[in-house]
C-alpha cells in the first residue's frame, strides 16, 4: 500500500460518504444524478463479488463493505426516501445509462484478464466505472447550476482518479511485473472525463465566481 493509493481510497471514500451524509442531513439530492449513483452501485456489486471468497486484507474488506453500503444507501435515499426522492430532478437526469452498460459488458466479454465469470465482471466494473460519471456531467451541463454538494462530489472523485494514476506509476516502478493494462487504460479515460470539469471547477474557484460549465 503506497501513499498515493491510500490517499486515493480516502478521497474516494470521502466522495461517497460526504454525499451520503449531505443527502441525509439536508434531505435533498438536488443536482445529483441518480443514474450515476445506480451505475456506481453496479460497479461495486460487480467488482466486489469476491468479497467473501477472496480475503486480501482487513482494510480491503472493510472498504469494500463501506463502498457497497454507501452507494446502495445513496440510491435507496434517492429512490425510496419520501422526502429526498421529491428533490430528485428526474426531468433533467435523462441520460439513458443502459447505453453505457451494454457496451461495457460486451467489452468485458472481449477484453478481460481471464474468461471466467468473476474476471469478466471485474473488467465490466472497471469499464463501467470509467463512464459512470457521464450522466452526472450531462445533468450538470443541463441544469448549469453546480451547488457545492455536487461540485465537491465530482471534485473528490476526480482527485481519487488522479491519485490512483500516481499509485499505478509508483507500483509500476517498485513492483516487478505489475502490469494491469485494463485498469490503466480505463482509469486514464475516466480521469480525462474529469479533466474539463476540473478545469472549470478550479478556474471558478480561483476567480471566486459561481462555477459555470460551457453550454
Amino acid at each position: 500500500m503506497n501513499v498515493f493509493r491510500l490517499a486515493g481510497d480516502m478521497t474516494h471514500l470521502l466522495s461517497v460518504v460526504v454525499l451520503l451524509l449531505k443527502i441525509h442531513t439536508i434531505k435533498s439530492c438536488a443536482g445529483i444524478s441518480l443514474k450515476t449513483q445506480e451505475l456506481y452501485a453496479v460497479v461495486f456489486a460487480a467488482r466486489y463479488l469476491d468479497l467473501f471468497v477472496h480475503f486480501v486484507s482487513l482494510y480491503n474488506t472493510v472498504m469494500k463493505l463501506v463502498f457497497l453500503a454507501s452507494s446502495f444507501s445513496i440510491v435507496w435515499y434517492m429512490k425510496r426516501h419520501k422526502i429526498v426522492r421529491r428533490t430528485y430532478d428526474k426531468d433533467h437526469d435523462t441520460f439513458r445509462h443502459y447505453v453505457l452498460v451494454l457496451p461495457c459488458l460486451l467489452l468485458a466479454l472481449l477484453i478481460n484478464e481471464k474468461f471466467t465469470f468473476r474476471e469478466v465482471m471485474w473488467a465490466f466494473s472497471i469499464y463501467l466505472e470509467a463512464v459512470a460519471i457521464f450522466p452526472q456531467l450531462v445533468l450538470l451541463q443541463r441544469t448549469r447550476n453546480i451547488d457545492n454538494l455536487t461540485g465537491q462530489y465530482v471534485f473528490f472523485l476526480g482527485a481519487y482518479r488522479v491519485l490512483y494514476i500516481l499509485n499505478w506509476i509508483y507500483r509500476y516502478f517498485t513492483e516487478p511485473h505489475f502490469v494491469h493494462w485494463i485498469s490503466w487504460v480505463a482509469g486514464i479515460v475516466q480521469t480525462l472525463l474529469y479533466a474539463d470539469f476540473f478545469y472549470y471547477y478550479i478556474m471558478s474557484w480561483k476567480n471566486n465566481v459561481k462555477l459555470e460549465l460551457p453550454a
Binding site: D9, H12, S57, N60, F67, W122, Y164, N167, E175, P176
Partner: peptide, 10 residues
C-alpha cells in the same frame, strides 16, 4: 505469482 495477478486494489 498469483498475488501479483489478483486484484488487490479497490
Amino acid at each position: 505469482t498469483d498475488k501479483a495477478k489478483t486484484h488487490d486494489e479497490l
